[in-house]
Amino acid sequence: NKFNKELQWATWEILNLPNLNEEQVKAFIDSLRDDPSQSANLLAEAKKLNDAQA
């Protein structure tokens, strides 16, 4: 389904953001699992944090 694909994509993207530490990655992945419908928003937040920590 749509959420499953978005969840998989967001998870992959977050795992590959180079500037997030392990705790941050875990927190984003946990949030994705808690509410897959928020995957686009969570991915945007993760990318923003990744850029800020570059």
Rank of each mutant, 00 (worst) to 15 (best):
V25W: 03
Q38D: 10
E22I: 08
A54D: 09
E6W: 15
E13S: 12
E23I: 12
L15N: 06
W12G: 04
I14R: 00
V25G: 03
Q38S: 10
N16Q: 09
A52L: 12
I14D: 01
N41W: 15
A27P: 02
N1K: 04
N41A: 09
K47V: 10
L32I: 07
Q24F: 02
L43K: 02
D35N: 11
K48I: 11
N19Q: 04
K47I: 08
W9P: 02
N1L: 02
K26A: 12
K26G: 06
L20D: 00
I29T: 05
Q8H: 03
L7Q: 05
A27H: 09
D51R: 13
K5R: 03
E22M: 12
K2G: 15
D30H: 14
F3S: 14
N19G: 05
Q8Y: 09
N1M: 02
S31Q: 12
P36I: 12
Q38A: 05
N19T: 04
R33E: 10
A10S: 04
N21P: 03
F28Q: 00
E23G: 12
L32A: 05
E22K: 11
D34H: 12
T11I: 13
N41T: 13
E22W: 14
Q8D: 04
D51T: 10
N19M: 08
F3R: 09
D35Q: 09
I14L: 11
F3G: 14
W12K: 03
S39P: 04
E22T: 10
P36M: 09
N41L: 12
E45Y: 15
P18K: 12
N41H: 10
A44K: 09
N4R: 03
R33W: 15
T11R: 07
Q38G: 07
A44Y: 11
A46M: 02
L15F: 07
A44W: 13
L15G: 06
L7N: 02
S31E: 07
D35G: 04
N21V: 06
N1D: 15
A27G: 10
L7P: 02
D34T: 11
D51H: 10
A27L: 11
P18D: 06
L49I: 08
E45S: 11
Q53S: 07
F3A: 14
A40L: 14
K48M: 10
L15D: 03
L42N: 02
N4Q: 13
Q8T: 05
A44Q: 11
E45T: 12
S37V: 05
V25T: 09
P36V: 05
F28M: 04
K48P: 00
L32R: 00
K26S: 06
Q24A: 03
S39F: 15
L32K: 00
N21W: 08
L7S: 04
A46V: 02
A46D: 00
A46H: 00
S37T: 09
K47M: 14
A44D: 08
E6L: 14
N16A: 10
D35P: 01
Q38E: 07
D34V: 12
F3K: 11
L42T: 08
I29F: 04
A44F: 13
L49D: 02
A44P: 02
Q53T: 06
N16D: 03
I29P: 00
Q38H: 06
L43P: 01
N4S: 05
K47H: 09
W12L: 04
P36Y: 04
A10L: 08
E45P: 00
L49S: 03
I14F: 03
E6G: 03
L15W: 07
L7A: 11
N21Y: 10
D30Y: 15
L7H: 04
V25Q: 12
Q53Y: 09
A10H: 04
P18I: 09
L20N: 00
N21Q: 08
